[in-house]
Amino acid sequence: MQVLNSQSNDIDTIFEFYDMAIAHQKKVFNKHWQGFSLDLVTQEVSENRQYKILVDGVVACVFAVTFADKLIWGDRDQDSIYIHRIVTHPNFRGYAFVKEIIKWAKEFASENNIKYIRMDTWADNEKLLEYYTACGFEYVGVVTLNESEGLPKHYEGISLSLFEIVV
């Protein structure tokens, strides 16, 4: 298993994963992502903030990171790596990629003097709340977004549960 930066030739694969995730979200939850812009993903790739996990050379999971999330984390937005849009290919469910991402993020954080690994999800998604805490994240509260300009469309007018790991 390898965690690698995504490259520009991975962009179609990333969007295929997002489409699979949206279809899955529609089946299992009352909210779903509203899609993402090509500009956003292209920028993330060019800034080395889009990642893929390979299993035997096959892309099994994708995720993105950022180092600033002021609209979501407010005054707590500091010294953090924020993990977003984790998508596992259906053929690789059960591989516990969130735990692998945490291992990777802890190493990355240690090497870059980052104090926190953080995530968010819809506040009413009980299944993910339980899963993220079982993976080692601490639940640190709920935030309701007053402003979402610059964030993907699914962030408009929602409440989010926040999670962090202190490195």
Rank of each mutant, 00 (worst) to 15 (best):
Q2M: 11
V3K: 06
S6V: 02
N9V: 06
D12A: 13
D12M: 08
T13D: 13
I14Q: 04
I14T: 05
F17S: 01
Y18Q: 07
A23L: 03
N30C: 04
N30V: 03
L38P: 02
L38N: 15
L40K: 09
V41M: 15
E44L: 15
V45Q: 06
N48I: 03
Y51I: 08
Y51W: 13
K52V: 13
I53S: 03
V55P: 02
V55R: 00
D56E: 15
V59R: 03
V59S: 12
A60M: 12
F63Q: 05
F63Y: 04
F63P: 00
V65C: 14
T66D: 15
F67N: 06
D69W: 00
K70V: 07
I72Y: 03
W73H: 07
W73G: 08
W73L: 05
G74E: 14
Q78I: 08
H84R: 10
I86P: 00
V87T: 12
F92V: 01
F92R: 04
A96N: 15
F97Q: 03
K99H: 10
E100R: 01
E100N: 01
I101V: 14
I102A: 05
W104V: 02
W104P: 02
K106A: 02
F108V: 00
A109Q: 07
S110V: 00
E111T: 02
N113Q: 13
Y116T: 00
Y116S: 04
I117T: 02
I117V: 11
I117K: 00
D120Q: 05
W122Y: 14
N125Y: 10
L129I: 10
E130P: 03
Y131C: 11
Y131E: 10
A134M: 04
F137G: 01
V140L: 07
G141W: 02
T144L: 00
T144G: 06
T144W: 07
L145S: 15
L145G: 12
E147W: 00
E147L: 08
S148Q: 06
S148D: 07
G150C: 07
L151N: 09
H154E: 15
H154K: 08
Y155Q: 01
G157C: 06
S161F: 08
F163C: 04
E164T: 01
I165Q: 05
I165D: 09
